[in-house]
Write a protein that binds this DNA or RNA. Structure first.
Lengths: 183, 183
DNA sequence: CTAGAAGTGGACACGATGTCCACTTCTAGG
DNA sequence: CCTAGAAGTGGACATCGTGTCCACTTCTAG
């Protein structure tokens, strides 16, 4: 069980980190910043969160769980019941919303290699793989990561910020992808 | 024009960097390592290459140029003449070969955000975009980056190393993608 | 041969990381 | 209520990589 002061400090850390990430962008926030803003020592911070990514993951956790729940037990087309291509398109749309809402967090958490090591990626992977299997696509394993690649935060942020594309335009492109491969 | 000693040092730096990248993996090589191995001072190194990525780009440059040439003026299906879907599949296959041959370099050079800022990405982007236009795909702009996303070094290396997929399997998945979207 | 431009190298200051440990604060059990 | 010791805390410290700066050396054009 968790001690009372420990719980209080965890809440402080998460709050402070959320503010800082939003204010300065995750990559520009140091562990020291977070510790100071939370009114906590370095040691305390490192005890629970060995790096920035793990904090961002913790902050993201709740939002991702909501989507995961919808995928498993929600209404179609996100949940079970619709055709695989339709479900994939709906999943893409939901992920775009998530990226749009939490861009700064996601950019801090799931950038580069570490993206694949989060539990969330494993979940998305299993979901999309099951859609491929349902659509009788041969050799789904390699295709799964290919279909998830456009959801990498760097890609999305490049499209939005670097290229000035709208989230609706990106969603439409992803729908086309879903229908092309599964439809 | 370039002074003789400068040219000699540039060659030394590139040689040393290639060896180190191959031996230890690009991310584990420090600027200092390279300077020492090249028998050159820090200042000299930084004068030309402000960071690891720029060295890797220089090393990659030649290989990428060969492929670019083939895309512009080579035989079909890589070069002009074949159907867009076929050309895209051929491009994917060539990129997989390139990733396979120079994985360690590419991982050092074009990782994360910086991938989009290299000249090479601009070239691939223009090429794929022209294929989309040739196939009369509506709103190609958002789709371009989506189709290039699976070629991110992190994705490829995750598939190969993390998931144990074969390069042939990945190529097949990408062919399916090309045919689904353009075919 | 020489003047000055171009190039060199390593010392330096800085900033971030992660560890370590003496101290403080909790809480379970008597 | 009190106390023992486990759990948690905080900040000093050592380490490492980065990028800059500048006195010195080497090249080359005239």
């Amino acid at each position: 069980m968790e001690r009372a002061d420990a719980a209080r400090n965890r809440a402080r850390i998460l709050d402070a980190a959320a503010d800082l990430f939003a204010a300065k962008g995750a990559p520009n926030v140091t562990m020291d910043d977070i510790a100071k803003a939370a009114g906590v020592g370095r040691g305390t911070l490192y005890r629970r969160y060995p790096d920035r990514a793990s904090i961002a993951v913790a902050l993201l956790d709740e939002h991702e769980r909501v989507l995961q729940e919808k995928l498993l037990r929600g209404e179609p087309p996100l949940g079970p019941g619709a055709a695989p291509a339709e479900r994939l398109a709906a999943f893409y749309a939901a992920m775009v919303d998530l990226l749009e809402a939490h861009a700064h967090l996601v950019l801090g958490a799931e950038t580069g290699r570490s993206r694949f090591e989060t539990g969330a990626y494993g979940f998305w992977r299993a979901h999309v793989r099951s859609l491929l299997v349902a659509a009788s696509v041969p050799a789904p394993d390699a295709l799964v990561d290919v279909l998830l690649a456009p959801l990498a935060p760097e890609v999305y942020s490049y499209q939005r910020t670097g290229k000035g594309l709208s989230s609706a335009g990106i969603t439409a492109a992803l729908r086309r992808l879903a229908e092309g491969v599964l439809g």
